[in-house]
């Protein structure tokens, strides 16, 4: 009986996890910050190359 209960709650948990998305707001912000830094550095280096 106990076994059945745990199996049930596992199923319920699985269902629950599939429906709610993890919160990735911080991840998105971090990725965009790193991306922005890479783009700005790239533009800076390329502008320096073109201007000299």
């Amino acid at each position: 009986m106990a076994k059945l209960d745990s199996a049930k709650s596992f199923e319920a948990e699985k269902e629950h996890a599939g429906k709610t998305e993890p919160k990735l707001n911080g991840t998105l912000l971090s990725v965009m910050l790193v991306g922005g830094f890479i783009i700005l550095s790239w533009i800076g280096v390329y502008a320096l190359y073109l201007s000299r």
């Binding site: 990735l24 991840t27 998105l28 890479i38 783009i39």
Partner: peptide, 19 residues
């Protein structure tokens, strides 16, 4: 795939293509 995951993959892909 998470919506945000799609956003940053597309963002990274476009950046690479532009560079």
């Amino acid at each position: 795939m998470h919506k945000y995951e799609k956003i940053w993959l597309i963002f990274g892909g476009i950046t690479l293509i532009v560079f």
